[in-house]
Simulated scan of single mutants.
Amino acid sequence: MARIAVVGSGIVGLATAARLAERGDEVVVLDKETSLASHQTGRNSGVVHSGIYYAPGSHKALMSRAGAESILRFAADHGIPAERTGKLIVATRPDQTPQLQKLAARAEANGIDAQVLSPEQAREHEPHVAAVAALHVGSTGIIDYPAVCRRLAEIVREHGGEVRLGTRVLSSRTVQGSVHVETDAGTVVVDGLVACAGLYSDTLARASGLDVDVRIVPFRGEYFELVPEREHLVQGLIYPVPDPRFPFLGVHLTRSVGGGVHAGPNAVLALAREGYTRSAVVPGELAESLRWPGLWRLGARNLVPGAREVARSFSRRLFAASLAELVPAVRRQDLVPAPAGVRAQALRRDGTLVDDFLVERTDRQVHVLNAPSPAATASLEIARYVVDELDAVMAR
């Protein structure tokens, strides 16, 4: 039995901690927040992704496909609200159909069941949708991810582990076969460490001695909700055909397990790593983003779609107009603000986004550096992979 520290009480950290605890390791979870799943996990739209968008053979593709099954099975086993709804990816103009066909081909390459539908067939699933064609993906669903986190934390505790909230991890270093984890409450000495620090994953990795040539650049995703009397416009999940020039999926409509319909998110640069509002600014973090050459190169390649995202951030009318391309009955007055999220996206120096999950290793430490969506879907699979990586670095 080893003593392992896990940094982060989001779903990836807790899934990893639960897996370690269940096999008999002594686990301590450390998180600076006073509640579980305070950031990416607790602020997403609760979608169980199929893996259709991701490169065949990538971790995202393989782990999403497996995770769509394992996370829903976990929910069923533990009484957590979840539903396999399926989703429609909707082409609203004829010029979008080639990209829709490419997604259908990618679905086949990834072993995902998806059917191209006519407009009439699409309206059988979503009566209010506007489509010249659509792709139906049956394995997509919805789930209560914070409830999953609460149950994972219970599993850690049931197996003798500890979830220590309100404890900020500052750095770590490996010393003579153990890892000294420096926190704002003192030093924790363990046999191994897994860092799932989300928005601060690169910062912690560098503070722990890793040579990390990516930066987390935070992108805020702003959401609305449909007013209750308009929720009938959406039966399940409705997504646009993604713009291949832009590295995000576009605003979409998703029904939640707890009731209600989420609308969004857009994607704009956040001015702080936890910048959930336009007024949230941390000058040092903003300066760090602006100093990273990859941000400027990404922006230069995405001037038009990026400007469109910023304009939509300041205009509910434009936000509603984007949604109305999918469901024409959606109006500006149908939208009420909902909490925003921030995507912890790793960006390379050359301006390319890290497309896949990224894990780096050092002596007795494993750092998860890039785990944005669909990491919640794939969390149990990521945990399996991370534990194997930890075993490997501890066996050296």
Rank of each mutant, 00 (worst) to 15 (best):
A15G: 08
S313L: 05
S322Q: 12
L237K: 01
L290N: 13
P98H: 08
P127R: 00
N370G: 06
Q235D: 15
R331F: 11
R173S: 15
V386Y: 00
D191V: 03
G209Y: 11
R361I: 10
V387A: 10
G51N: 07
P240C: 00
E360A: 14
F314P: 13
D95H: 15
G42M: 00
G250R: 03
H367Q: 05
D355M: 03
R384M: 06
R312K: 12
R255N: 01
D356N: 04
N110L: 04
A104D: 08
M1H: 10
Y385I: 02
R343A: 15
T183R: 11
G8R: 02
L135W: 12
P372S: 10
P242C: 08
N370L: 04
Y239W: 00
L152V: 06
H59C: 04
E285W: 01
V175G: 12
L290W: 09
T187V: 14
V90D: 06
D391R: 07
Y54D: 03
H39N: 02
P305K: 00
L271W: 13
P247W: 08
D25E: 14
K60E: 03
V7L: 07
R308K: 14
R157I: 10
S315M: 10
T41Q: 01
L353N: 14
V212D: 03
V386F: 01
Q235E: 13
R317L: 13
Q121P: 14
V268M: 06
D184K: 07
P98V: 10
D31R: 04
